[in-house]
């Protein structure tokens, strides 16, 4: 099936990306979640380097460099500057769903994304596509799921960023000639997301004394009594 070294390497990093997505779901400590996100971003850039080498595409090389600069260097740096150190030692004791069930659900989401993309991908005779699109969609879905299951602010933020990684992992196979300016803009945008949400988390911490998103439940709809 696999014909060349770059494709084999890409498939290898696809597997590891999926595993790091599962690891993010299974980790309680904030620091651990952040670490797995950085690993995942490194794998994403590895994939775009090897695919760039295989297809002689300068765009993919640039994307790999941008990914490292934004997600491996800038995002952890910004988070550490914005939030105090003890923040990362925190562990989430109560999650909406316990971890074994979460992993099971993540597995289910992976199967679902294989099913959804299967017919579309198999029409294109390209073995890279067949690996990247289902894994990318699984990354997006698992990230979205961890947003729902997580209670702490920063793991929720990292869930969003992991969704972005999933989208890009599919993107490097299906849209390799994306204009460079768009890629740069997306990277700047991702860092800005972290700055804004980090600032917001800091003011929530200062005002409410907690960063549990579950504590934010003041605003809701209550029925009015008609006279």
């Amino acid at each position: 099936m696999l014909t060349s070294v770059p494709e084999a390497l890409n498939a290898f990093s696809a597997g590891l990306i999926l595993i790091s997505a599962f690891a993010m779901v299974a980790t309680r400590q904030v620091r651990g979640v952040l670490r797995f996100f950085v690993y995942q971003s490194l794998l994403l850039s590895l994939s775009s380097f090897v695919l760039g080498y295989g297809t002689h595409s300068i765009h993919l090389w640039a994307l790999g460099v941008i990914t490292i600069a934004a997600k491996v260097v800038a995002i952890p740096f910004v988070l550490r500057r914005l939030l105090p150190g003890d923040f990362y030692e925190r562990r989430e004791i109560s999650q909406a769903v316990n971890i074994p069930s979460s992993l099971l659900l993540a597995l289910l989401l992976t199967l679902v994304s294989e099913f959804i993309t299967g017919p579309v991908v198999s029409a294109a005779h390209d073995s890279v596509l067949r690996v990247n699109v289902p894994v990318g969609l699984a990354g997006v879905l698992i990230g979205a799921y961890s947003l729902v299951a997580r209670r702490e602010a920063i793991p929720q933020l990292i869930g969003i960023l992991a969704m972005e990684n999933g989208a890009f992992f599919a993107g490097i196979s299906i849209a390799p000639e994306l204009p460079l300016i768009a890629e740069l803009a997306v990277a700047v945008d991702v860092v800005l997301i972290v700055v804004v949400v980090g600032l917001l988390t800091r003011s929530i911490q200062q005002t409410l004394g907690t960063t549990e998103a579950a504590a934010l439940s003041e605003l809701k709809e209550e029925p009015v009594e008609w006279h």
Partner: peptide
């Protein structure tokens, strides 16, 4: 506290839409 709660819900729900839309653009 209520403004921050609103901002948080707003941020999470709408930023979450972005990677999904990005996938669509790809």
């Amino acid at each position: 506290s209520s403004a921050l709660e609103a901002a948080w819900k707003f941020a999470v729900l709408t930023i979450m839409g972005a990677p999904v839309a990005l996938f669509g653009f790809f």
